[in-house]
Design a protein around this nucleic acid. Sequence first.
DNA 1: ATTCGTTATGTAATTACAAACATAACACAA
DNA 2: TTGTGTTATGTTTGTAATTACATAACGAAT
Lengths: 127, 127
Amino acid sequence: MAGSKGDKYYNVFLKYKIWLVSKEGENILGDGKINLLKEIGKSNSLQSAVNTIGISYRKAWGNIKTAEEVLGFPLVEKHRGGQSGGTTTLTEEGKNLIKAYEELHKEIDATINKTVKKFFNHINDFK
Amino acid sequence: MAGSKGDKYYNVFLKYKIWLVSKEGENILGDGKINLLKEIGKSNSLQSAVNTIGISYRKAWGNIKTAEEVLGFPLVEKHRGGQSGGTTTLTEEGKNLIKAYEELHKEIDATINKTVKKFFNHINDFK
DNA sequence: ATTCGTTATGTAATTACAAACATAACACAA
DNA sequence: TTGTGTTATGTTTGTAATTACATAACGAAT
C-alpha cells in the first residue's frame, strides 16, 4: 500500500465519510442532510424533497429539527397552510452552511485524493 | 466556516472515518478491525483479543473471515487444539496491512487537520 | 365554510445489526 | 484417553434504527 508495497494492494480502495458535530460531540449533519437541504432549496418543499430523494418524511423532519437544535439556529423556514399546503425554504444561514460544507468537502476530497495517490498505485474513485 | 465566516462556526467540528473497500466496493476493514488485528498480534489469541476489546467472539470471527475473503489472502493463521486450546496469529500479510493502514491513516489525519485549520478558526480535535 | 396539500407529530410495524447462547471440533499434554 | 481452552459455527435473542401508518394543525383560495 505505502510506497514500494503499492503493487500488493492494487484492488484496495479507500472510502471515507465526513460529518459535522458540536463542541460536545453531538452529531449535526453529513452528506445525507446536506443533500436533503439542497433538495429543499430547489423545491421549497420538504415533502417534495423527501419524495425525490426517497427517504421518509418523518425521519427527514426529525433530522432537520435535531440539526437545528444542536446548531442553535434555523436552517429552514417552514410554513403550513395555504392552497398549496405549505412550504419549507432555506434560511440564509442554511444556504451558507451548505456552501461552507461543500467547500470544505471539496478541499478534503482533494487532499485525500493526493494522499491516496501517494499510497496506492491507482486513482481512488471511491467516496 | 470557510475563510471569513470561520467565526460563525466556532462550535462546529469535523469528524471523519476512513475504511478500505475492494474494487467492487465491498467493505474490507476500518479502524475497528485494524484494532482487533493489532490486539490479536499482541496476544496471539482471538478469544483474548475480543475480551480485551469487549466485542463478541462470534462477530469478530465473522468480520475477519469476510475481510480475508474480500482481500483474497489470509490476515491471520488459526490453530485449534493443544493444551492451550489454540492460537490465532497474524500473517506477514496481516502485519503489513496493519502497518500500511496506519501509515495511510496518519497521513490522512495530518492532511485533514491542515484543511480543517484553514476552514475553522480552531483546532479540530475530533476524529 | 369547505377543500387542498403540506407541515407536524405520536405510535406501530419492520428491518437491520449486534450480542448472547449453545455446541462441536480440535490437538496437545498429562 | 481424558481434560483443557480455544477455534468454529449455527441459532436465538435483543436492541437500535428506519419506515410505515394515522391523524391533527394550518391557512390561502375558492
